[in-house]
Lab assay of single mutants.
Amino acid sequence: MSGNGNAAATAEENSPKMRVIRVGTRKSQLARIQTDSVVATLKASYPGLQFEIIAMSTTGDKILDTALSKIGEKSLFTKELEHALEKNEVDLVVHSLKDLPTVLPPGFTIGAICKRENPHDAVVFHPKFVGKTLETLPEKSVVGTSSLRRAAQLQRKFPHLEFRSIRGNLNTRLRKLDEQQEFSAIILATAGLQRMGWHNRVGQILHPEECMYAVGQGALGVEVRAKDQDILDLVGVLHDPETLLRCIAERAFLRHLEGGCSVPVAVHTAMKDGQLYLTGGVWSLDGSDSIQETMQATIHVPAQHEDGPEDDPQLVGITARNIPRGPQLAAQNLGISLANLLLSKGAKNILDVARQLNDAH
């Protein structure tokens, strides 16, 4: 009898209710805020589980004197976190989706994509230029951005401005803007500013005609071990179906173009009346040469937790077992079709030249 009692006690200790789920994140304040929001949602869904947040620095956090596009290494903000995932030191990792490459290392998958916040870019102005827009900034004003995508589009749109690289986390960039006289304004992701509670610093939100956004911008991705079915089931509740389908289309477009950090590629997606609209573009580094096109596809946005595919093969690095396969494939095909259209119009040449120029500098 006593033996059975011990077995029952052991089973209770090993039951999922007692389990601590370890969540990996970057150390920056924004990353911690984003991770806290994901953990809060998981806690609400699984009140019996405990969650421990483990923060670590990544290569991208450490190399702050070089433009991201020049470092010449993929997975700048993800490699150390993936290493911890691989060694079973954490069970899942919360990322900004735009930091996750469209091809993940073997053994990993994006197990959830959370509801997207505003994906557009924002302009934050130096205190002396508050009330201005990019259009009304004085001639030769210097605007800071760490992104080739932003610089290429904005140089084309605002030729009277000069664009220079600015690195560091959000706090560091804002301090550089406010305390030094080098920059009249800087460009940042609206979602990051909003998550930090800095709505009052948003001086201008850039519309798609001015600057399309990065693939996955404004959404959070939760990376897990691809074979860890328990954790895949656990994080599945975080999937937002519309965000998922938009981001599958965007990531398929980028992957098929073979774009990345070192080339200016941008997108804009919208879901309306059962249609998914995808606009994508590529630019030369100075913005003088560009190709942009829009395509659409009829896609039914499923309700969360309709029964999805059981075999769960990944699409552009994403596993969404609780979302039907048909809409996911339709979104992926839309991204591939748009990429093929741009490639047929000469996108590869623009991107190759951009890559060579970026590598040469």
Rank of each mutant, 00 (worst) to 15 (best):
R19I: 12
I21Q: 01
R22P: 06
R22L: 14
S28G: 11
Q29I: 07
A31I: 01
V38I: 14
V39W: 06
T41G: 08
T41R: 11
S45P: 09
S45A: 12
G48P: 05
Q50I: 08
F51K: 05
A55L: 10
M56L: 14
D61V: 01
I63L: 13
D65S: 10
T66N: 10
L68Q: 06
L68Y: 11
I71M: 15
A84G: 07
K87Y: 15
V90M: 09
L92G: 06
D99V: 01
L104T: 06
G107S: 10
G107M: 13
T109A: 06
I110R: 01
E117F: 12
P119R: 04
A122D: 05
V123L: 11
V123C: 07
V124K: 05
K132N: 14
T133H: 07
T136H: 12
V143K: 04
T145C: 05
T145M: 07
L148A: 01
A152Y: 09
L154C: 12
L154D: 05
L154F: 07
E162H: 06
F163N: 14
R164F: 09
S165E: 06
N169L: 09
N171K: 13
Q181F: 10
I187R: 01
A189H: 01
T190S: 04
T190P: 04
R195W: 05
M196Y: 12
G197M: 01
W198V: 10
Q204C: 01
Q204N: 01
I205W: 01
Y213V: 01
A214W: 01
V215Y: 01
G218Y: 01
E223Y: 01
R225E: 08
A226V: 12
K227M: 06
D228S: 08
D230W: 13
I231W: 07
D233V: 07
L234T: 06
P241M: 15
E242K: 10
T243V: 01
R246E: 01
R251C: 04
L254G: 01
C261K: 01
C261A: 01
C261E: 01
V265F: 01
V267A: 05
V267T: 15
V267M: 15
H268P: 04
G274S: 01
G280Q: 01
G280P: 01
V282S: 05
L285C: 06
S288M: 15
D289G: 08
S290K: 07
Q292N: 11
E293V: 07
Q296S: 08
I299D: 12
H300F: 14
P302W: 11
P302C: 11
A303P: 01
A303I: 15
Q304S: 14
H305D: 14
G308Y: 01
G317P: 11
A320R: 04
N322K: 10
R325N: 05
A330Y: 01
I336V: 05
L338I: 03
L342F: 15
L342D: 01
K345R: 04
N349Q: 14
L351G: 01
A354Y: 01
